[in-house]
């Protein structure tokens, strides 16, 4: 677990952490916006239209 400070600056955020956060974000967007499950689609219907996701 080495998070090394770079030349006295702030410590870098580990790439693995960044990837976890990005994947979590992508998963949320997929479920809310793109997944074509009937139930999800009906529940998120208005939002998908309003946010401009491809909907029916």
């Amino acid at each position: 677990m080495s998070t090394i400070a770079r030349s006295g600056e702030k410590a870098d955020v580990k790439l693995a952490n960044i990837i976890v956060v990005a994947l979590l974000g992508a998963a949320l967007i997929f479920v809310a916006g793109l997944a074509q499950s009937e139930t999800l689609h009906d529940a998120a219907h208005d939002v998908r239209h309003a946010v401009g996701f491809p909907c029916h």
Binding site: V21, A22, L24, G25, A26, A27, L28, I29, V31, A32, G33, A43, A44, V47, A50, V51
Partner: peptide
């Protein structure tokens, strides 16, 4: 669902 979408955007950002 809007909160969910923007939480997703926030995480990516």
């Amino acid at each position: 669902f809007t909160i969910m979408v923007y939480a997703g955007y926030g995480l990516m950002l």
